[in-house]
Amino acid sequence: MKATVLVRPKHGILDPQGQAVETSLRQLGFAVGEARVGRVVDLEVESNDPAGARAEVERMCEQLLANPLIESYEIELAETPGD
């Protein structure tokens, strides 16, 4: 299966990168409220069982992909074509 992990700065955590992006977008004339910058990790997981794959990716997030002090994460799963 394919897994996409979205890692975001937690709500309420100052995000200077997002602020810089927000300022730049405004300078370009775009009307934006708040911008926040996170990270996307695309993974191919060997398991074809959605529940098992999700549990495994969750462990990856807890152990490495996100730092729970400052980041939250979301996992999206999709079947690999041809499976």
Binding site: L14, P16, Q17, N67, L69, I70
Partner: peptide
Amino acid sequence: CEAGLLPGVLRRNESL
């Protein structure tokens, strides 16, 4: 900090 041997985390400087 990442290893959990010390508390907290170091982030990008506020000024970038």
